[in-house]
Design a protein around this nucleic acid. Structure first.
Length: 572
RNA sequence: GCGCCCGUAGCUCAGCGGAUGAGAGCAACAGCCUUCUAAGCUGUCGGUCGCAGGUUCGAUCCCUGCCGGGCGCACCA
């Protein structure tokens, strides 16, 4: 792939030419080869001279001058210019771009696939919502991002494992069972309310009915909470998880594993990790000060097992076990992540709500302590989704029972529109989802713009056959052809940049760049489509050159949509 | 009080660990279908990048302090 090879060539030149300047590997880390914002500045541009000038002890432009001749020697380079404060701008030969187009068509889905810079196995953990009810729209954002990140990492050449943590061991399950039991009793005509802090959602009525169908009145006279918990836990969790899995499936997401917290606690992970941290002097028995900013009437200092988060500059230490000796959420988390490490994963990505920032920060420190590395744990925080219904904000609360269900939204706008829309905004921007607008705006949703481009490219191929024009033979194309218009060249330029997108987006774990690239490429396609007629039975050779470009665009467009988890339709 | 996120065109948002005259989509306005899908194309309009300092040859981007919005803050999840 041209971009990758050229990038390596540039780094090679830099290292050779500046070998005696005492530069370290790290100095080259900031050197980037990118497409200039302004296309009149060429096809690619590097900041190398500016980034390295200071270390080398030369003025940026002078350093650039020194390097230009070497760069000119690269076969695909047509011309090199030094611009502004010291940018080195490259214009590539159109024949080289055509070569990239041909490569893209030939390689298909393999085009843009990279070899990971290091072989560490990656695990992406996402969704992971508690199995206490259906998914709401905010979790949908998590699901879409996690899945796209996993796709991206795979495309970048990593081995990726997708996992959902089923938190079936905490106190919320106890509450769930109590709520379910109340609904169950209601089915038998008893005047019982769902507990104050329980789950009032109507889905539990259906689940209670399933329980009644299965067990009849077996639990009507059972009041022993522990027995109910023991007997109904698995049933309740499974039923709720089924609701979640249905939505996950609608989004075309598949996990490699639903990891059960409950099962993990049958192993010694918890004990082991605490011992490890204790041996490092990071775990001790102590008390926590009263919480700030929030009145707690019944605060009493109690001796707990604590993780020394303050050692890492955090304001408070973190409890690993509560006063009853049961692992806290944080405690479970370090055990779970220790488990991931034990399974051989060394790149741990977790898509997690920003409201849990307080929990993933100490966790990152614990993982740092366990591995001695800072680049193992990568939380991807995302802002909550705010929902407008009839112009009014909807308070998202599972407890209040007025959540906006993902399944409802998907029914209204479809998986493609939902996934693409979620990926058009970076995760740390809070997103307002206007339900009325989502339906009404369907036609102006950018996903249709991109899909339409793909459909057009397919339509042209069908038209070709109808006109009796022979299919394109890639090996007989002439790279030096003059049949490539500026519109077609612009498309090829995007195709050439696709590997750069994969490289950069995967490194930054930023899948929203995929949708921006897709819109950009689609825009170039539509623009070219309007500017020039592609099919011309009287000039088959020129037609073939144009069709080759169209095929390349189609292949890349399909691939980038695939990474987003969005369909690439052949017709619309 | 502390912590995390955000504040860029009327609206929704990009701007990839600093740099070549601030971008896209939508909305508004003006054009383009006897010719490959007009769910499209072409053009116009539109921003003192929340405010104030600082670092630099240069800041939307980095640092500090404000202002505004969202979220979180024991042994809840």
């Amino acid at each position: 792939m041209l971009y990758i090879e050229f990038n390596q060539f540039i780094l090679g030149v830099l290292k050779t030419k500046l070998a005696d300047k005492g530069l370290a590997e790290a100095d080259f880390a900031n050197v980037v080869l990118e497409s200039p914002k302004d296309e009149t500045h060429g096809d690619l541009s590097t900041n190398a001279a500016m980034v390295l000038a200071k270390k080398v002890g030369m003025a940026p432009r002078a350093l650039a001058e020194m390097l230009v001749e070497e760069f000119k020697a690269y076969p695909a380079v047509d011309s090199v210019e030094i611009a502004g404060p010291g940018f080195i701008n490259f214009r590539l030969k159109t024949s080289a771009l055509i070569g990239q187009g041909i490569e893209a068509v030939k390689q298909g889905a393999a085009y843009g696939k990279l070899h990971a810079p290091d072989a560490r196995k990656a695990m992406v953990e996402y969704v992971s919502i508690n199995p206490t009810g259906p998914i709401h729209i905010g979790h949908g954002r998590n699901a879409v991002f996690g899945d796209a990140i996993a796709n991206l990492l795979e495309k970048a050449g990593r081995t990726v494992w997708r996992e959902y943590l089923v938190n079936d061991a905490g106190g919320q399950i106890r509450v769930l069972v109590k709520s379910l039991h109340a609904r169950y009793l209601q089915l038998f005509g008893q005047d019982v309310n769902v507990p104050e802090n329980g789950y009032p959602g109507e889905y539990l009525i259906d689940i209670a009915q399933m329980l009644k169908d299965r067990d009849g009145d077996k639990w009507v006279n059972m009041t022993e909470e522990e027995t109910l918990l023991h007997e109904l836990r698995a049933f309740a969790v499974e039923a709720c998880l089924d609701l979640i899995k249905t939505d996950i499936k609608t989004l075309h997401i598949e996990f490699d594993r639903y990891f059960s917290e409950h099962e993990m606690h049958q192993t010694s992970r918890m004990k082991d990790v605490v011992k490890l941290l204790r041996d490092k002097g990071l775990v001790y028995e102590g008390t926590l000060p009263p919480p700030k900013g929030k009145e707690v009437a019944d605060y009493k200092p109690v001796e707990l097992t604590l993780f020394k988060a303050t050692e890492f500059g955090l304001p408070e230490d973190q409890a690993i076990f509560n006063r009853a000796g049961i692992p806290t959420y944080f405690g479970q988390d370090i055990a779970y992540h220790y488990d991931k490490l034990q399974r051989g994963y060394e790149l741990l990505v977790t898509v997690i709500g920003i409201d849990q920032a307080g929990s993933f920060t100490p966790l990152s420190k614990a993982i740092e302590a366990l591995t001695g590395r800072k680049d193992v744990y990568h939380p991807v925080p995302y802002e909550m989704v705010k929902v407008l219904r009839d112009g009014q904000p909807v308070k998202l609360s599972k407890r209040a029972g007025n959540i906006v269900l993902l399944s409802d939204v998907l029914e209204e706008v479809g998986s493609d529109a939902f996934r693409f829309t979620m990926l058009t905004v970076k995760p740390t921007t809070s997103l307002t989802f206007d339900l009325a607008l989502a339906v009404a705006k369907t036609m102006e949703n950018p996903v249709f713009y991109v899909q339409y481009a793909h459909a057009r490219l397919c339509a042209v191929e069908r038209q070709r056959a109808e006109l009796g024009i022979a299919p394109v033979c890639l090996d007989s194309l002439d790279p030096e052809t003059k049949d490539i218009s500026s519109g077609a060249r612009a498309v090829l330029r995007e195709v050439m940049l696709y590997p750069a997108l994969i490289e950069q987006a995967s490194r930054a774990l930023e899948p929203h760049r995929l949708t921006f690239y897709a819109q950009n490429l689609a825009s170039k396609v539509h623009s070219w489509y309007g500017a020039e007629k592609w099919l011309d039975a009287a000039n088959v050779q020129a037609t073939h050159h144009r069709l080759a470009v169209a095929l390349a665009a189609r292949s890349v467009l399909a691939d980038v949509l695939n990474l987003c988890g969005v369909n690439a339709p052949e017709s619309m």
